[in-house]
Design a binder for these strands. Structure first.
Lengths: 324, 324
DNA sequence: TACACATCCGTGCAAATGCACAAACGCATT
DNA sequence: AATGCGTTTGTGCATTTGCACGGATGTGTA
């Protein structure tokens, strides 16, 4: 199939003219007395035969290739991998927050709706946000806070602070994330402001979420005394490996059917899935299963994580899909 | 001016997506949440900063770079340099002919007017022409032959053979190239067929010419007894270094004003210059000054020559233009 | 010779790309 | 706070490029 020496000569001349002298295909065609299509085809051939070599030099000290593999394997829009200086939780979270903030800022123009959950990682993200003046942006809370005073740090306050940093309007959910009964939940959802806030969150352009895991230091497990030991065990028995905005999912990112769901005030997983850009931030020890599940289930399409977790995610040759 | 490490990372990712995954700029913009223009600019930056490297591999055993230098220096459409196996005149001419034939064929589609002069090099070129069937092409003689029987080999016959090889129509000049008097010339030019032939040659799409030189074996000097020793000396005194189709020029490719011109039946240099593509074929010892002059004067815009001559043409750092 | 097959080629059109322009912005100085 | 300058940004448009299609050409086989 490959052409022979005499032609390579022509391929070389044309490739040089195109890639080095930056002539247009049209000009080259005129000079060499060929048709434009032919020049196009010869260039294609020159690329295929390796006469033209295009290399992209990886910048040192980054994990661009790791990112590319993650993107390819899990169908992500983007993956961001950071290399924490130390792997203690505090530092990992801080560096993840920085990276997530960068990643978020890059895709914001100042006129969109951003919805976010809360958690320690998102707290770090908000801390890393630069200040802007975007009056046309709105930051919307995605899930109720926790029913305690100190929980405010992880509830509405994060949304408020994010909006403040960006000079944006904010829209909070003045309610706990988990209430005592379905009845109480329904009552709160009947509130116009809460309902509208959730509706707005559902049609956000970008979502920023942390990925919860079943680790002992998990905010949900620690703080929310509304989940009894028994209920937690039930959820585990149903396969729960993590949560996004209090919505629990199994190892394949599928929502877990459990009574608890009906007492939660937050976007549902399906609603989150429909948001065009869902940035999931999580890393460090213990988050692996939850991240893997969120990726498998397509719950997020942008992942910000650390290099160890990234490597581990790529090391397993398993399937993305749940078997039926 | 150059941006720093944090950005290089993004440049790399985008460059990879574009050049390796072959995504469109539009798709990349959507994935990374950027505008399309921005992606375009980042790619430009990535190229400038050397993150994207495009190399064109020179095929071994060719003189592509020599050619490129000739093209650049003398403003040629194309230069073709061959490396003869041996440098005896016969072999050089043979290889030049082959290369010229290739070069000519490449830019012919089968519907144009080709005009040609004659000479030993063009003879070799015609010998190397492949056979085609191009009834819509016309091959037109550019200059009269020489006034002797054996001269036919260098006159109309070459045109005829070229046309035959290509399956094209031919248009010959049934007259000698140099006649005894201006009166005789004018009489021949009054002939409708000759006049129309010359007119047709003048509006040819492609010209194929040899470059004559003042070497002892020059066809013109040898055969045409119509040029006296004295006339030849006069021409030399006027600075003649070579000829195209019997039209003499000086070291800067300018036509030489001499009585002989009025006895010649051939296109004038200015007419030749106006042909869109003029392929000059010449090489070997002794042709150097003539080639250099033709290049300086812009008499040809495609040159087919040997590597030694090419190197020599590039070695002189002189000006292209005549001083006034 | 005729036919079938395959390859090559250029035209027309749609997609992709680059570019000029003007608005918006950040920044620093007044 | 207001002003000026330089930079960055996106929109609209012209150019450039890829691609499908039908026609032409060449080749091998019956």
């Amino acid at each position: 199939m490959s052409t022979h020496a005499s032609d390579k000569h022509l391929l070389y001349k044309i490739a040089k003219a195109y890639y080095q002298d930056e002539l247009t295909q049209h000009d080259i065609a005129r000079r060499f007395g060929l048709s434009r299509v032919k020049v196009s085809r010869l260039l294609e051939q020159a690329r295929q035969e390796g006469i033209v070599k295009i290399t992209v030099v990886p910048p040192p000290g980054t994990f661009a290739d790791l990112e590319r593999q993650l993107e390819a394997r899990f169908g992500l829009l983007e993956a961001v991998v950071v290399a924490p200086a130390r792997y203690d939780r505090a530092n990992v979270v801080r560096e993840l927050g920085q990276a997530a903030a960068d990643c978020l800022m890059r895709c914001l123009k100042g006129r969109e709706i951003l919805t976010m959950s809360w958690g320690t990682t998102l707290r770090a993200t908000v801390d890393a946000l630069p200040s802007r003046n975007w009056p046309h942006m709105t930051v919307v809370q995605m899930a109720g806070g926790l029913g305690r005073p100190e929980a405010e740090v992880y509830g509405s306050d994060l949304t408020r602070r994010a909006a403040q940093a960006l000079g944006a309007r904010s829209r909070m959910i003045p309610a706990p994330g988990i209430v005592a009964s379905k009845l109480a939940r329904d009552a709160l959802l009947a509130d116009t402001h809460i309902a509208e806030t959730l509706a707005m969150a559902a049609r956000a352009d970008v979502a920023l979420v942390g990925l919860g895991a079943l680790t002992p230091d998990s905010v949900v497990l620690q703080v929310s005394s509304l989940l009894t030991e028994e209920q937690i065990n039930e959820l585990k028995a149903l396969g729960m490996v993590g949560d996004i905005a209090l919505r629990c999912y199994d190892a394949y990112g599928r929502p877990i059917r459990h009574e608890v769901n009906e007492r939660i005030i937050a976007l549902e997983l399906d609603q989150i899935k429909r948001i065009p850009r869902v940035i999931g931030v999580a890393g460090g020890t213990g988050k692996y299963e939850s991240i893997r599940a969120a990726l498998r289930g397509g719950l997020i399409n942008v992942l910000v994580t650390d290099d160890r977790t990234a490597t581990r995610l790529l090391s397993e040759p398993d399937s993305h899909r749940a078997e039926r």
